[in-house]
Design a binder for these strands. Structure first.
Lengths: 207, 207
DNA sequence: ATGCAATATTGACAGTGTCAAGATAGATTT
DNA sequence: AAATCTATCTTGACACTGTCAATATTGCAT
């Protein structure tokens, strides 16, 4: 990949993203500085600016990779048509919170104010993120149709609320506000039970 | 309050908190700098350090006032014993999200990673915040006992999940991730319906 | 009045993101 | 092969940030 000490790094953009992701997961976003990053890569302070317009652009690129990875995981659960719908929904809930708990800094970047608050997100990031959000809605609609979630509610609103539940639990855990990470699975099961109150005791429909 | 141009400000600590809160709500936490704050108050850069150990201590103090205000609002709803329990729970949900939507920056400070992640919160703040968290649990237990929330679930876990739902919706709204603030009331009603699925159509018990 | 503690000040340091101007090297055209 | 173009990288600089150390001023208690 990278040459020894050439004037041109060779693959600086990818190297920056990878080093930044590593630093992010390890030390948190507060410690993620472009200058330190450049130093780690043996490159001048301003070199990254030839590959990213500014820090936000780099953060957006990191978040984008996170969305791509997450979508693979989500789909691999949602599309397991051999499993009962109820199992899939429960698994999805657990997977969501565990993803957040295992990549707290990345999750914060993907779903936090840093990128979304002042429209800081790059167009590239939006192009990856928005479909993920919409995917959440279509999953919700699917679960409504299979009787797992209340059917007499607008799918978009219900998706916002159920996603909000997962998001909120994830945030409470990763931000260290109140919940403890040792309670994760209990909370997931509780959330699943709350979602599927109607469904209790009924037979599990296929699909 | 403040003297004209005296060497000693007179009431600097309170002035800082008030100015900082105003700046926070107006420009966001990213723009909240101790130096600008000092300049606004006509005081040197390091003067605030005689009243707050560091920036975290100031932020903790601001958050603490937020918790005090919120607890008043929450209690004023919860203790309205003249209203049916279902109404109170619904009102509580709306009040929670509206509080967050009306004080987005303050909410972020109160319930965000800035103060809670690396144990940055002051002991003073914890002394105010933790009771608020526990209050949430006792409200949940109360609503379980009145049949509004599933009774066969551990109150602590259920509180974490229901609070998580509100927290998640609040964050999605104030962080500008997906939900739009014009959908707030719809989302609150959807959340209320999700919580009280069992309860549908049943008569509203008093208390 | 004297001394002490609270409060405020200037100076300094290390750190940040990012712009401007110039250097280098690889690719493209002539 | 030579010249030019363009992507890439560099140093220098600026305006910020939080915070420490040393110093000055003031009000209060003795």
């Amino acid at each position: 990949m990278a040459h020894k000490q050439a004037y041109h790094h060779g693959d600086l953009r990818a190297s920056i993203i990878s080093a930044a992701t590593a630093r992010l997961e390890l030390h948190g976003i507060e410690q993620l500085s472009l200058r330190k990053l450049a130093e780690d890569l043996g490159v001048s302070r301003t070199a990254p600016y030839h590959h990213f317009k500014d820090k936000n652009a780099l953060l957006s690129a990191i978040a984008a990779t996170g969305f791509e990875n997450w979508k693979v995981t989500a789909q691999s659960i949602f599309e397991r048509e051999d499993l009962p719908a109820k199992t899939r929904l429960t698994r999805f809930i657990h997977a969501y919170i565990h993803y957040a708990a295992q990549h707290p800094q990345l999750y914060d970047l993907m779903f936090g104010r840093t990128l979304w608050q002042h429209n800081n997100a790059t167009e590239d990031l939006k192009a990856v993120a928005y479909p993920t959000f919409h995917y959440q809605v279509s999953m919700t609609r699917h679960w409504q149709q299979h009787g797992l979630l209340p059917a007499d509610t607008d799918a978009l609103r219900l998706a916002q609320v159920t996603w909000g539940t997962l998001h909120g639990i994830a945030r409470l855990v990763i931000d260290g506000v109140y919940a403890n990470s040792s309670h994760i699975d209990d909370m997931c099961d509780t959330a699943a039970a709350l979602f599927m109150q109607q469904y209790r005791g009924a037979a599990d429909p296929a699909g």
